[in-house]
């Protein structure tokens, strides 16, 4: 049994986004696992429902959100436990790092207090012990002069430092699971790599499992054991990392990969952004939501709901696509595929 098993998670908000219904679905039947001690990536473009998925697991969605499904953590369904009990889980067993370190720390409370309060809440540590521990945590996440920093306020720290402090807060009680929602997106490019590396080191040395949410496949490539790709509120593909990068099968995933710079790409090959925007979607009940942007879309993709099924014999590789990208074992196959594309485009 995995540490976190999300099953059939659906989330909707009142006030539909113009699709006629009073409820708008942000997430629809999402399932995935996070194994103990492993890093699971959750990937998708903006608006695909990554953040609301993680907030649902934490029980932090606004009251207006309707949530169904289950999120069993260590055998307990976090979607079903009362708020009181959830408070005991948050911060101690499941902790979270958010995207924007500029706004996710309280500007009027010292960094020290923001670390010690979580320690004191969950470990019952004395003021002194919590303070000492907080200093050590700051040192561990690479903040120089940690004892002095404890007395400072968030605005006195740089963006990168703040995110390190957030990581220190999240890891303070040695949670079993760390959820990181775009933890580096708001940071300078040069700092991003450092912070990612730090997070990787920390979870590895502590055996903490991590759900890493990102829209950047480059981030996934370095850290994750498994990858779940979401599009418009549904899982479209799921596989182990090596498998996914070597054999992306869903058209959206391969499109994402083609839009990421790769060191092993042949020289001169240009990056190919996916045409259109995530807003060009159709409802999943009318077929594949990606169809308006997909060059391989045909009638088989529209009209009926497509199931998430294993990719042939590879039962750890799931996908939801009527015309998966053919296996690209060698250059020859790849050429075939490109020819196919060209033909389709010409006929379109």
């Amino acid at each position: 049994m995995a540490l976190l098993e999300v099953r059939d998670l659906s989330i909707s908000f009142p006030g539909g986004s113009g699709r006629g219904s009073a409820l708008s679905k942000a997430v629809d039947g999402v399932s995935f696992d996070v194994e103990a001690g492993q890093v699971a990536g959750l990937v998708g473009e903006s608006g695909s429902g990554k953040s609301v998925t993680s907030l649902a697991v934490m029980g932090l969605l606004p009251h207006t959100a309707r949530v169904s499904g289950s999120a069993s953590f260590d055998g307990r369904d976090l979607l079903a436990v009362p708020e009181r009990e959830l408070e005991g889980v948050r911060g101690r067993e499941v902790a979270m790092v958010f995207q924007d370190p500029m706004t996710s720390l309280n500007p009027v409370v010292t960094v020290g207090t923001q670390i010690t309060e979580v320690l004191r809440r969950h470990t019952g540590a004395s003021r002194r012990a919590a303070r000492d521990e907080a200093g050590e945590l700051l040192a561990r996440v690479g903040i120089p002069a940690p004892v002095r920093r404890l007395r400072e306020y968030p605005h006195q720290l740089s963006g990168g430092m703040r995110q390190r402090a957030m990581i220190a807060i999240a890891l303070a009680c040695s949670p079993k699971l760390l959820i990181a929602d775009e933890p580096t997106t708001a940071l300078d490019v040069t700092i991003q790599a450092q912070v990612l590396e730090l997070m990787g080191d920390l979870v590895r040395e502590r055996g903490t499992a991590m759900l890493l949410i990102t829209h950047d496949l480059g981030v996934v490539a370095g850290l994750c054991d498994t990858v779940t790709v979401m599009y418009s509120g549904r899982v479209v593909e799921r596989a182990d990392r090596h498998e996914l990068f070597a054999r992306p099968r869903h058209r959206y995933t391969s499109g994402l990969l083609a839009s990421v710079p790769r060191l092993d790409a042949p020289r001169g090959q240009r990056l190919q952004p996916i045409p259109g925007t995530p807003r060009d979607v159709i409802g999943w009940d009318a077929g594949c939501a990606f169809a308006p942007r997909c060059s391989a879309a045909d009638d088989a993709c529209r009209g009926t709901e497509l199931p998430l099924v294993s990719d042939g014999a590879r039962d750890r590789h799931l996908l939801r696509c009527a015309h998966p990208v053919p296996d690209q074992h060698d250059q020859h196959d790849q050429h075939d595929q490109h020819d196919q594309h060209d033909q389709q485009e010409r006929s379109a």
Binding site: E87, R90, M96, D100, N106
Partner: peptide
């Protein structure tokens, strides 16, 4: 509605402490 209140809740702080330290003061 601010992010840091969500952070405070994500830490599992009891509601009273969230209110006093992270909402009212601000």
């Amino acid at each position: 509605g601010e992010d840091h209140v969500r952070t405070a809740r994500a830490k599992g702080l009891p509601r009273g402490l969230v209110s006093r330290r992270h909402v009212l003061r601000n």
